[in-house]
Design a binder for these strands. Structure first.
Lengths: 238, 238
DNA sequence: ACGGTTATTTGACCTGAATCAAATTAATAC
DNA sequence: GTATTAATTTGATTCAGGTCAAATAACCGT
């Protein structure tokens, strides 16, 4: 085996190890997985796959961010989830129906690993432990989706935003300022919250009026996690 | 082993065999699974589990129907899916976080099999083939959920109902009448479609006015699948 | 700094659908 | 049957939030 190939494998195993799905696996297993993995570079805005594409495997993000979404017939984009470094997604590829159920597009320049379906399936047959991990990973995606469904139907935008903000506060009870750096533009974030930029903007403005947050460019500052948390409770509570 | 126990195992393996998840498995495997399975009877309206309950395993429906849903803080029920005879659900139980992510309640008198977590995990470690099946099953649930998210956010009630109806027409292009028997009351169906009974009723009325369907008690008749399909296309299309 | 493009904000307007209330129509018990 | 209760329908009202339009503000290449 050439030194170059070894180097590549080394880089891949390093990424795999840092991925939730594979942490703690013995080096030999990682090497085996690396052997069925290829690296892909994505420009910002580039599509990784489209809905219905034949699924060639699942992905692990080495660097960057990928937006998994559906495009509706009216052209609107419904964000399912934004995955970031270390996340794995599209494990759904391993199952029988061969098409991906959604679109995936890089939100920034990214590097991802494609764990190829055929290869990993062979491995899974020999490594039940690995299969259990995949089960775990998929189940956590299921949980996220179940949560999404609730988020999208039940709550109004104000509550969804409050929820989103509170989730990002280390301690929602405290009065300590929390700075949140937006990693995407506000239109994408609005889409994640199931709304449009105009409404998102208005809701931010409302919160600003209530002295709950301060907004400066891409930096949101939660002025009072406790108050925000109280608002959230009130909106849900009774 | 007593004859009674053998009989019970026989009944269980029969149900397991008829479940998508396990069809085609060798008898010995089925017996092994049956050994870690217990039967549960549910009265109509009885809860199988609540959100957050420690997950003791996943379920296969032997007879009846189970409504998996979330209850929101405001008391409303968001249906995630209605499972029926032969379906398996709550495979999410096998993964690490121990709580179920939703509620499950019998819509009618039902009998379900609980495939116990500890037992099946042991089996999975020896049977990668089985693990792959579970992966497939979970991935199909993921697909359903991804579809749901689109359904719930994107379309208006008219489109959702048209979609629901068209899905139940063997051939959406044809003009042949299609009779659909409702298995639940209309309030539950409305909830599945992400709306309330009033709006559901109005939408049915609108379709009746358009001569697209006829309604008689719990029987819906699609008068012209082709026309309905055209309406759906139009609502989505452009 | 300057022109051009894109992102964000604000305003005005409108619609789908939830809610509340009331009338009808099943369904079930007695 | 008749009384009760639950399910469904219809009417009237209200409002969150999406859409369109226009004004700023931020960003980028030169």
């Amino acid at each position: 085996m050439s030194t170059l190939a070894e180097l590549k494998t080394f880089a891949i195993t390093n990424t795999l190890r840092s991925c939730q799905l594979f942490t703690g696996l013995p080096p030999q297993d990682l090497a085996n997985i690396a052997a069925v993995t290829v690296v892909k570079s994505l420009e910002k805005g580039e599509y990784l796959f489209h809905e219905g594409d034949v699924a060639s495997g699942f992905y692990v993000i080495q660097r960057g961010a990928v937006n998994v979404h559906r495009v509706t017939a009216t052209g609107k984009e419904q964000v399912i989830h934004v995955f970031r470094t270390g996340d794995s997604f599209a494990e759904v590829a391993l199952a029988a129906p061969t098409g991906y159920p959604a679109d995936a597009r890089a939100l920034e320049n990214s590097q991802v690993l494609l764990v190829q379906k055929d290869g990993i399936l062979t491995l899974l047959k020999r490594q039940p432990e690995l299969a259990l991990r995949m089960l775990g990973s998929m189940s956590s995606h299921l949980r996220v989706l179940v949560g999404q469904i609730e988020d999208l139907t039940v709550k109004d935008v104000e509550t969804r935003l409050a929820n989103w903000l509170v989730k990002r506060c280390p301690n929602p009870q405290s009065e300590a300022l929390v700075k949140i750096e937006l990693t995407t533009n506000k239109r994408v974030l609005a889409a994640e919250l199931g709304t449009v930029s105009e409404t998102f903007s208005r809701t931010l403005a409302k919160f600003r009026g209530l002295k709950l947050i301060a907004v400066k460019g891409k930096t949101l500052t939660v002025l009072s996690p406790a108050k925000l948390h109280a608002l959230l409770k009130r909106n849900l509570g009774e």
